[in-house]
Amino acid sequence: MVSMNLIDDLIPPQWRGTYTLFKKELFRFWRVAFQTVASPVLTSLLYLLIFSHVLENHVQVYKGVPYKAFLIPGLIMMSLLQNAFANSSSSLVQSKIMGSIVFVLLTPLSYLQFFIAFLAAAIIRGFLVGISIYLVAIWFVDLTIVHPLWIFTFALLGSALLGTFGIIAGIWSDKFDQMAAFQNFVIMPLTFLSGVFYSIHSLPPFWQTVSKFNPFFYMIDGFRYGFFGQSDISPWLSLVVVFSFLLALAWAALKMLKSGYKLRG
């Protein structure tokens, strides 16, 4: 509490509004950390235990990399992306349905401040889940890190991209059902079909081409490159694709927020 007060005092007055909304969003997910952090960590470990047990002796994707080790970066990134999306989207849709969004809308916070605060909280939750999975997974598997900066870059861009997508989905959705449709019909298929469990080189040519239209593939492939120094495509190409998607979604989200779409009549 003392350290939190210290941080509060260091924030310049013009940033207090943004910082407060960011802090509120952090506290919101931390209050239900079993659901928002522990649960996705456990789910990822179950994937790891089951898939690695079944496929360990049947699949080797990269030379010298056991399947168990190959799987971990994909699982980390999948959970990181899903949780970054869940944080901004569920917070927004919940506060819209409960009406408590009005407390933020009545304040002098600008649409940009609103965006930054929600995005930063989504990134933090994504990182927290990703780091937790990593820390638990390295108890079971030897995992090298060849290029830590690539890992950080793709984790940051990926969580920002999905956090931004979550803001769009949260603003657009009027009920939990619509939100669930985003999660189950967009996010889940795209993450599962993005190379979390396999290399796209193991797919038939047609599906390899299809995979290259999936932005999640670039996030996971680039992230995995940071661990093994090997990837399906160049990490630079992945970086360009992911960054372009992030810019496009951020533009859309900011446009929605600036116009007050579904927030201000």
Binding site: R16, T20, L21, M98, T107
Partner: peptide, 26 residues
């Protein structure tokens, strides 16, 4: 007019957050 509230926080926390949105500190 509507009885809206944020279910994650207690009264004092909620009020301090609200003041913070307006740039008010400790």
């Amino acid at each position: 007019q509507e009885l809206v509230f944020d279910p994650f926080f207690n009264v004092r926390e909620m009020l301090r957050f609200q003041a913070g949105y307006f740039g008010r500190g400790r």
